[in-house]
């Protein structure tokens, strides 16, 4: 009987724990918003974090964007050519990037590059009593450490997504026009005729703004909530990447349903 109940009990404990953490993360989000004054007034704190979260992610975003665009160009051409509409390649590449691939892939890359780094950094600060030292010095760690990182993530994410889109379109152009030999004019005009500024470009960037908030919130929360040991920080870092990936994809579905 007990052996039968054990998995159910474990499942129950797991769900209760999940709800507990959901409540805690919501409260944490409110705390960040309430303590954001400093990161906006002393903007240098945030600028520093934009450097670590955004600037240092540039390379991975540029390279991945380029390759994703090139793959899109190749696959898109092969499929479209079957229906005799290879001319629509520009539109295909741009629309898939702007609406879905750009925001989602950039956010996934951001979560694994910058999100995990944020978690590890805050977790280590906690493990080495730095956060406690700060609060004993009458400095609120949420205002001084967490909020600037959160806002840096929110600022960086749309920029990185936009850059990812541009690189992807460039990659698609390279394959479609330079390699396969489609007409450059058709490529761009097809794109321009089918891409709507508000509907496709702006909505995509709004998506990435939401992803940025979600990923950085998860990252700083996991760091702040980490068990202050080496093992604790390492598992918190893993959780950041896994949770972020799931949340990005789920949120993408919800936002897409709302927007398009």
């Amino acid at each position: 009987m007990n052996a039968l109940l054990a998995p159910i009990r474990r499942l129950g404990a797991l769900s209760i724990n999940a709800i507990w953490r959901l409540g805690f993360i919501s409260r944490f989000f409110v705390a960040i918003l309430l303590n954001s004054g400093q990161s906006l007034l002393r903007f240098r704190l945030t600028i520093r974090e934009v450097y670590f979260a955004g600037v240092l992610s540039l390379i991975i975003i540029i390279v991945s964007g380029l390759f994703v665009g090139m793959v899109l160009g190749l696959q898109g051409y092969n499929t479209l050519a079957r229906f005799g509409s290879a001319d629509a390649l520009g539109a295909l590449v741009a629309l898939s990037l702007l609406r879905e691939l750009g925001p989602v892939l950039a956010a996934l890359l951001f979560a694994s590059r910058s999100g995990s780094a944020m978690t590890a950094e805050i977790g280590l600060m906690k493990a080495t009593e730095q956060l406690e030292a700060m609060s004993v010095m009458a400095v609120n760690p949420i205002a001084r450490v967490v909020a600037p990182r959160f806002w840096a993530g929110v600022i960086s994410m749309p920029i990185l997504a936009a850059l990812f889109n541009v690189m992807g379109i460039f990659g698609g152009y390279l394959v479609g026009v330079e390699m396969i030999g489609l007409d450059a004019g058709t490529f761009w005009s097809q794109m321009q005729n089918n891409v709507d500024l508000h509907y496709d470009v702006v909505n995509g960037l709004i998506k990435s703004l939401f992803f940025g908030m979600a990923v950085t919130l998860i990252a700083v929360f996991e760091g702040y909530d980490a068990t202050p040991t080496a093992a604790g920080v390492s598992s918190a870092t893993t959780r950041t990447v896994v949770t972020s990936a799931l949340v990005i994809l789920a949120l993408d579905f919800v936002l897409t349903a709302f927007m398009f």
């Binding site: 009593e129 700060m134 609060s135």
Partner: peptide
């Protein structure tokens, strides 16, 4: 706390 100073066990210097 502003009138108080605390020395932590391992210093707790800000590593960054």
């Amino acid at each position: 706390r502003r009138r108080m100073g605390m020395l932590f066990q391992f210093g707790a210097l800000f590593t960054d």
